[in-house]
Simulated scan of single mutants.
Amino acid sequence: MTKLVFLGVSSDIPKIAVLARERTGNIEVLQPGDAGAEEAEVAVCWSPPPGALAAYPRLRLIHAIAAGVDNILCDPHLPALPLCRVVAPDLTVAMTEFITWGVLYYHRDLDRALANQRNKIWHRTAPAAASSCTVGIMGVGQLGAHVAGELLRMGFKVRGWSRQEKTVEGMESFYGENQFDDFLSGTDILVCLLPLTAQTQGILNRATLSALPAGAALIHVGRGGHLVSVEVQAMLENGHLRGAILDVFEKEPLSVDSPFWSMPNVIVTPHIAAAASYDSVLDQIEENIRRLQHGEPLRNLVDRSSGY
């Protein structure tokens, strides 16, 4: 029987652990401090305390409960073990829905309509074709490529930027540091879907946002570490940014004294853009446990050098 220990501060961790106990299978679910927990072979994690994983000498696999693993890789005492993340079809659909809503919110001038409602102003804006709006997607992995395809199907112009060249039929592709400003300069709505790495830490800063056309909008659904809040706030206040939909932040929950809560051109959502169902998370963890036991290649194995 394979022993699993669940580690981390996420409110999802105990819920997934309860569901795992209810499933039949050849696994034993443990919490830190439980008898036999030190013999765990697999750690299921979200933002485990620094050094926590090193306290389990028999670990053979570390498994995240979501797509992001920066909250695990930041541990300076992280054991040199395979690390896997969750990549789920329902997560892809949910993220696409959220971003499509955000794009339509700005393209259809719903932010301005809501501002007019608050001021009791009846004003009809002229309709614009989707082809008049260019959506720029930072991060063209599995999620970004799917989002790009859906927006292209709706008639939007789409451009993508990533560390290495990625192609999606119909999408204008940019890659590498040398093409970053060119990518930004033609973007009306910027979507951040990047993984968090040393190269992308703090990428949503004044320099990046200044390279966008005046009046561009931001949809941030990447990682909290991408955001330099004070600089995003300044670009919203000076009008260079029309507005922003922010789903992830440097520190979560977002502090009650954050200016973002009350800024009229900002929508704050509590990290809900996309999340795999608990069943889907467990399916992938159990499949990787089976693969580990049989010496088969693990699914969604993280390349530590790239951070995803």
Rank of each mutant, 00 (worst) to 15 (best):
L4F: 11
G8R: 06
S11L: 09
D12Y: 12
A17L: 14
A17G: 04
V18G: 02
L19D: 05
A20L: 06
T24V: 03
N26S: 15
V29G: 09
L30T: 03
D34G: 04
A35I: 05
A35L: 09
E38P: 00
E39A: 10
A40C: 08
V44T: 01
V44I: 07
P49W: 05
G51L: 09
A55P: 05
Y56V: 15
Y56Q: 10
P57W: 11
L59Y: 12
A64P: 03
I65S: 03
G68R: 08
V69N: 10
N71H: 15
L78E: 11
P79S: 13
A80C: 12
V87G: 04
L91I: 02
V93E: 15
E97Y: 06
V103W: 04
V103F: 04
Y105T: 10
D109W: 06
D111S: 11
D111M: 15
R112D: 06
A115D: 12
Q117C: 07
N119E: 14
N119Y: 01
N119I: 00
I121N: 01
P127W: 14
A128E: 14
S131E: 09
C133L: 11
T134I: 00
T134D: 02
G136S: 03
G136N: 02
I137D: 04
I137S: 08
M138T: 01
G141K: 08
G141E: 06
A145D: 06
H146C: 14
G149V: 06
M154A: 13
F156Q: 01
V158Q: 03
S162F: 04
R163T: 08
K166T: 13
K166A: 14
T167Y: 09
E177N: 10
N178M: 09
L184H: 11
T187H: 07
C192L: 05
C192M: 05
I203S: 13
L204N: 14
A207P: 00
L209R: 05
L212C: 08
L212H: 06
A214C: 06
A214Q: 12
A216T: 04
L218K: 08
I219Q: 04
G222F: 03
G222P: 10
R223Y: 02
G225R: 03
Q233Y: 12
A234M: 12
L236D: 03
H240P: 05
L241Q: 05
L241N: 05
I245K: 05
E252G: 05
S255V: 00
D257P: 00
P259H: 09
F260I: 10
W261R: 00
I267W: 12
H271D: 13
I272D: 00
A274F: 12
A275E: 11
Y278S: 09
N288A: 13
H294K: 14
L298W: 03
L298A: 07
R299K: 15
N300M: 07
R304W: 09
